[in-house]
Design a binder for these strands. Structure first.
Length: 270
DNA sequence: CCCGTGCCCTGGCGGC
DNA sequence: TGCCGCCAGGGCACGG
């Protein structure tokens, strides 16, 4: 499940492999991946050169001069560089590079999406214009004001990309554990100091995960066979039944906002 | 506007 | 061993 660190790892891996290369063809095998229609993606990419690979929240941004391709991997999307366009039944889009090989989008669950936007200007229109700041650039006071107006659980609020961008289920659990705040705590009851802690810990957790190449728990491995190592340093996520690293209390698994949630009921206060 | 629910999709797993 | 049913999960549409 690519969250910010996984997408950043994909970005770093992909950049030297695609920068400067010309897209000579685009094949779409599963059209819903391209909700505006396969032809929109084909017309935008074909004949253009990939000039950069960026990341905004969990979105990967392929820059091709005056167009960008926004890629959201959702649960299990990934890229491979392949000699064939469609060797797996989960290969849904093939972007041919220099007529030689293919940047293949593979997604078991078919949840991922690709959108075309203009460059410049793509940050000023949906979906990227709707994203909150990434934790590293967030103003805690502004986030506190946003959270204060919400009645929902803090975990649910932190998963909302309009509040802050980049956190997913894994890193929200880790952030709240590090902040010693219970995922069910109501957003509106958080103090400014609480929110300052959350923003700081979210930034640290994401930074550390990026440095380790992200996580690759469950079925997810990121682009091109690179395997993240962050799952080796998770404190609570997936740790049900194991002792809390801080106090020894058994970590429990519960459900918050429909998401599997791991928590130390002793360390994390409601 | 805000919030909760259901949907998309398929591999994996529990139950029998 | 094999089959069936159920479930996870990010983001969005929809309805109250």
């Amino acid at each position: 499940m690519p969250e910010l660190p996984e997408v950043e790892t994909i970005r770093r891996t992909l950049l030297p492999m695609v920068k400067g290369r010309v897209v000579t063809d685009v094949s779409v095998f599963y059209p819903p991946i391209t909700p505006d229609g396969p032809d929109v993606v084909k017309d935008a990419l074909a004949g253009r050169t990939i000039t950069d690979v960026r990341r905004v929240g969990k979105h990967l941004v392929l820059v091709l001069g005056d167009r960008v391709l926004l890629v959201h991997f959702r649960m299990e999307g990934r890229f491979f560089i392949r000699k064939t366009t469609h060797e797996s039944k989960h290969d849904h889009v093939a972007i041919t590079l220099d007529g030689i090989d293919h940047l293949v989008y593979n997604d078991t669950r078919k949840f991922g999406r690709m959108l075309v936007r203009d460059n410049p200007g793509y940050m000023d229109v949906a979906p990227l214009s709707l994203l909150g700041p990434e934790p590293a650039f967030a103003d805690p006071k502004r986030i506190w004001k946003t959270l204060r107006s919400k009645t929902i659980a803090i975990k649910t609020a932190l998963l909302d990309q309009h509040v802050m961008a980049g956190l997913g289920n894994i890193y929200v659990d880790e952030t709240l554990f590090a902040s010693r705040i219970h995922p069910l705590k109501s957003s509106k009851t958080l103090t400014r100091k609480d929110v300052g802690t959350i923003v700081k810990e979210a930034t640290r957790v994401l930074d550390e995960a990026c440095a380790l190449g992200g996580s690759s728990i469950r079925t997810y491995t990121d682009a091109l066979g690179v395997h993240g190592r962050f799952q080796n340093v998770l404190n609570v996520h997936t740790k049900a039944g194991e002792p809390c690293p801080t106090c020894g209390q058994t970590i429990i698994k519960t459900v918050v906002g429909g998401r599997g949630t791991y928590v130390c009921e002793r360390c994390q206060k409601k």
